[in-house]
Design a protein around this nucleic acid. Structure first.
Lengths: 208, 208
DNA sequence: CTAACCATGTAAAACGTTACATGATTGC
DNA sequence: GCAATCATGTAACGTTTTACATGGTTAG
């Protein structure tokens, strides 16, 4: 059985990486229990780029085991459920490599903040400013968290960390670079609304 | 009936904006049919920040209509199904404003490329380079597409456009700024692997 | 002649998150 | 005492994507 990893459909079209592939990657990166894998996607190196929760991880791990893409040794523990320590197999590493070599789906950003800001005209000015403050602060905080990563990772992981840090900083700077224009435009629009209707009477009277 | 828009759960925790809110936003922005709304999320101003497909849009539109958050006038057409032209109502605008004022879930980036690059050590160098080329090119192309947006949009939409353009350019620059380090590290690792085993024989012989 | 565009809508399938169930240990 | 951490796993739930159904017009 040729252990399929459907990150590409039957036609070869780009499909998102599936949870099995993501787990295989986490395993290769040295996260070797379901619990640790979740942390890798919640707080660890993959945090910015992918997400995965228990509900996907444990079934995926069992599937990988059944397909021979991962192996598992159980460690009996006191009080807690037995710890299952997984390792990627050679077949698993081959499958991971194959999945990463297919056409990858391009990045997708989901930003409720940016969507909200599109409707700045419906919000009060102080709400818009607060939104921008929170948003920029969020990215700065993220950048700092991501920068404080484990020392001396392999080359690929180093790239992830550096990109995450600098990319988040860049986005924050971008917000700050454009907010002045937004806030000024909003003020202008408000002034235009609040202004008493322009003295058309004169024009009308003069034109008659 | 107080037309709920569940972008916040019962406890007030941050939840992603739901499809009804997104449709309300599209309606407010002047996209007034299901078909046009899809284009707004596929190619239009929201393209970078949210996604929404027919399967979500048409049911959402019908729900909004039933709740009085949108109104609809049908335009009979030749051959095609009747065109339903929607408009946001005052209640709808209030609901949109309310949804955007709740706690918003922070941005989530999904990047299969970045995940793949984390495993550069499993790929051939030319594959890694091709990946980086495609990735940077993708962001540059996106930036250019986003920059070529409709003229003179309202202030909030102007912000979206400018952020999209500059943000994508910044990310592309970031890729290019860090790729040299990655590729060099990969070369170093390969050289270390390819190097003939160090002359331990001498040491062993000398020590005997 | 083929592809893309216009236009709405439904149904099924795939996928993911959340909450639940369980429960000892460690730090504040 | 309370919260967090460790640790696995399932079931319900909701969302999203994809395919299907229909079909005339227009541009290359």
């Amino acid at each position: 059985m040729p252990s399929r990893l459907p990150s590409s459909g039957p036609d070869g079209a780009a499909m998102p990486l599936d949870s099995k592939t993501l787990c295989l990657g986490a395993l290769d990166a040295g996260f070797n229990t379901g619990y640790d894998i979740r942390k890798a996607f919640e707080e660890g190196p993959f945090r910015l780029y992918q997400s995965l929760s228990y509900g996907s991880i444990y079934p995926a791990l069992n599937a990988l085991l059944a397909e021979g893409l991962a192996s598992c040794t159980e460690q009996v523990q006191d009080g807690r459920p037995d710890k299952k320590v997984y390792a990627i197999t050679d077949a698993g590493r081959a499958a991971l490599r194959a999945a990463l070599t297919r056409y990858l789906k391009f990045d997708r950003l989901r930003s409720d903040f940016m969507f909200a800001i599109a409707f700045a005209h419906l919000l009060r000015h102080d709400q818009v400013s607060a939104l921008l403050d929170d948003y920029a602060a969020g990215y700065r905080a993220l950048a700092d968290e991501l920068g404080a990563e484990s020392c001396d990772p392999p080359a690929g992981r180093r790239f992830l960390i550096d990109m995450g840090r600098d990319g988040c900083h860049a986005w924050a700077r971008c917000i700050e670079a454009h907010r002045a224009a937004l806030e000024e435009a909003l003020r202008r629009d408000q002034d235009a609304d609040a202004e008493p209707p322009p003295p058309r009477l004169a024009a009308i009277g003069g034109g008659g």
